[in-house]
Design a protein around this nucleic acid. Sequence first.
DNA 1: CGGTCCTGATACCGCAGCGGTATGACCCCA
DNA 2: TGGGGTCATACCGCTGCGGTATCAGGACCG
Lengths: 279, 279
Amino acid sequence: METRELRYFVAVAEESHVGRAAERLGMAQPPLSRAIAQLERRLGADLFVRTPRGVTLTSAGETLLREGRAALAAVEAAERRTRRTAQAGGRAPVVLTAKAGATSELMAKLLDAYAAEPDAVEVEVVLSAPGHQALMLRDGRADVAILHRPFDDLSGFDTDILTVEDQVLILPAGHPESTRSSMTLAEATSLLPMPRWPDLDGTYPDGPGPELRDLTQILQLIRLGRTAIVLPESARANLRDGLAVVPLTDAPQVTTVIAWPPHSTSPGVAGLVRTAGRL
Amino acid sequence: METRELRYFVAVAEESHVGRAAERLGMAQPPLSRAIAQLERRLGADLFVRTPRGVTLTSAGETLLREGRAALAAVEAAERRTRRTAQAGGRAPVVLTAKAGATSELMAKLLDAYAAEPDAVEVEVVLSAPGHQALMLRDGRADVAILHRPFDDLSGFDTDILTVEDQVLILPAGHPESTRSSMTLAEATSLLPMPRWPDLDGTYPDGPGPELRDLTQILQLIRLGRTAIVLPESARANLRDGLAVVPLTDAPQVTTVIAWPPHSTSPGVAGLVRTAGRL
DNA sequence: CGGTCCTGATACCGCAGCGGTATGACCCCA
DNA sequence: TGGGGTCATACCGCTGCGGTATCAGGACCG
């Protein structure tokens, strides 16, 4: 199976429509139809059921979509990491990705400590949208990432735990419940509409709360009494006036980990991980 | 990058010789040379340094070999698992792989317990050479595996721990040291030549000990006073007369785990893992 | 109930690019 | 300095990919 075929298949599966997939791929519809048919013949498996409205995946197709995406990410990763290695002849900067905003204190400590190491290489920090760190690690855009359980999918990575924190509710200082010493998650979410986080594709789920784009904006909306948010305890450090904090008794703990792809041999990654383990 | 190019590259890298690689690939040398040159041009990276005796990898080439092997395994896994899903329409047998011989009691318990589950699917057990279980999981020949830390490379898999054991030395009953109550690993290996385990490619490293092909054979050789072996404690169950067991004080513990590829959605795998967790 | 619109499939064609053979350029070594 | 070995280059034929034109069939509508 060639990656070209896999890319075609994934495009058709994602669009559920051969014509649209062909457009997205910058080609005509007939060769795409033929390529899919050929792939099905070679695999000996029906991947799609053809309907008058487009196509839908069979169970074999669902398997190929899931596994094929991972395979394509692995191929892309190979390509990108090879390019990156060649660029700087072994001393290429290590790319670290983390969620924009959060964990800044921890990151600063890590980067400072690592920079002080004798054999430190340059670290390129890429801040990306929530949930994208794992993707970047999988497709080679990053070498190491700061991830958060249970929000990120850590499967397939090697990880070291950095911190474990409880979560707290941040709400307007004047709110009637703002002086309570603790609260359950269910209570917290019933007080005010919670902001909505973007999905992986950048769109927002439907709901009453404001769309979360940047944390300071949300904090402003909290001061105005329009919303509240559940965050790890460490977020307290960034708070200013007008906000109240209530610990949550039953919210899942947030584990911050440093993650890297298995078999990584980059000395930069190894150094960063070693440094992180000493923090 | 196409998988064909990757396969060509891996062949050349493994042979360190374009001509031999071409032979292995069943093609002539010139198109292979050209394909490699084209890959290098497209990646913008030198992958090999050409010498009068063949080729050797650059650092970029080493990166591509490591990552490319993983990517090829992922593509193969996608292909195989798709074929398997199609064959039986969602009720395909789940393939479990384990090291031949060992852990038989644990395996029997697991399979019996799982077979008693209401929604159990057929389990196909594949016994394979030591170290091959992880490979089979990576390239889709298996869906779930019984692995042993620290011997197998668990990186990239999801795992649940089944058992943790100490290791013991098994030596001839008549050996002067056979009555000791404990021993260090260094002492143990100095008494008799240890058998050699095959490498992943099936060849044996050089050394004085006998080549290990099957455990009963080795036990026979131990009775004859020719060798001794370090095994997990559970191996005691299979021993017969003529053998003595000495606990080791500093040998690493052996952790038996059940492992499966991340994002596995097979109901069979999920059921097996659930059952294993209850053992 | 037939026309229209949408879907994917088929037929056919031209050419890019893959693999083949023949040969060259270069290095090591005797 | 020639011979054997390496990989690279030159050139050719054909496979197979992608293009355009068209067909086949179900859904929907008047």
